[in-house]
Simulated assay, not measured.
Amino acid sequence: ARVSLIEIPSRTEIKSKNLFSVKDVIAHWHPDGTYLAIQVARFTKTKKSSYNGFEFFRVKERDIPMEVLELANKQEKIVEFAWEPKGHRFAVVHGDGARPEVSFYTMKDPKSRQAKHLGTLHGRPVTSIHWSPQGKYVIIAGLKGLNGQLEFFNVNDMDTMAINEHFMCTNVDWDPTGRYVATSVTSVHQMENGYIVWSFLGQQLYKVNRDRFFQFLWRPRMPVKLGEEREAEIQKNLKKYSKKFEAEDESLKSQADTEKLAERNKMEADWKAFVERKQAEFAATEAQCAALVRLSGYVETDQDVEIEEVEVEEVISMKEEKMAK
């Protein structure tokens, strides 16, 4: 077999590689075209079995250098390959059986020009890998037959943040910002249809059950045209920017608290003014009533009253009877 990179529209061949004893070839382009990974399955000398490996093209570098990557066990089945959308890393799911392994590599190694192995997760219930659109985070998912096992993984720290389950899950969809992810069960199953929205840390935020659910889509967002250098500079100085924005947030919060306190003070002043106004109206009404009483000639006296209790005995009937001796 022969793999060729062709420039369009000139149709000029800019790089090629001859491959031998090829059984199958699968091409995996990096989302921004930086790299091309060729997954190659080759026959052994006996032609009775095959082994796997990768051919990498660094497309945006001078002369498009190539390199070969072979797994420790070349006989293992390649289940899944996935590039980090914004970055230089990739993940490979490899192994036989229901619990294969997940290996992470990077194309950026300051000590060499070769792909570097970062680490391997052993015995994971996984069928697919889902990178965050912003990179760094990945969901290791065991869908369909594995009942929706979800592992939220931080590749920078090589650390598992959370392990959850969405029973019978069929789809995993990240939102464009990389802050949220939705898992869903579509109508390919007759039961458990609906979706769950998670944070990138693996915390469940929202759940909806809906019969005959077909598809979940996030609203697309306009790309941020800052350029790679500007984005890298922001990532590098993120703590400095964070402090600036936190100070602005604190200022806005303080302003909001001041406005709320002023509103409460105004409500209290209005209430006190209302009470004083009503007290003045009551005093005026009381004075008018007293003047009317004086004009009528009625004089109120505050004489003491004595209460005397008198007991009266009254004979109601009398009857005499003789007692027998």
Rank of each mutant, 00 (worst) to 15 (best):
E67N: 06
K45R: 11
D302S: 11
R89K: 13
A269S: 11
M168I: 08
F90I: 04
D109K: 02
T170F: 02
E165D: 14
E263T: 13
N147R: 15
R62Q: 13
E7R: 07
I14R: 08
K23M: 10
A287F: 03
V208M: 06
N18G: 07
K319Q: 11
Y105I: 02
P220Y: 05
R210H: 05
V293E: 07
A287R: 06
E300I: 15
P133K: 09
K272L: 03
N52D: 06
V93D: 01
A72I: 05
V3G: 03
A247D: 15
R212A: 06
E151T: 14
H122P: 07
Y137M: 11
K74W: 00
K86V: 15
D304F: 13
L226R: 12
R113C: 10
K240C: 05
F57Y: 05
G178L: 06
G87W: 00
L118R: 00
E321S: 04
K45L: 15
G87V: 02
V22D: 04
Y180C: 10
K23F: 08
V126E: 01
G53D: 14
Y35S: 09
K60Q: 10
H130G: 05
E233F: 11
E67P: 11
R230W: 12
D175W: 00
I196T: 09
A41D: 08
G87I: 02
T160E: 14
D63K: 10
E192V: 10
A37Y: 02
V126A: 09
S187G: 11
V138D: 00
V181W: 00
A1W: 03
E233Y: 08
F282Y: 10
L5H: 02
K322V: 15
L71W: 00
M168S: 13
K225P: 04
K74G: 15
L143I: 01
V138F: 04
R210P: 10
D249P: 07
T106F: 00
I8T: 13
V275N: 07
T127Y: 02
E311P: 07
N73K: 07
D175M: 03
I64E: 06
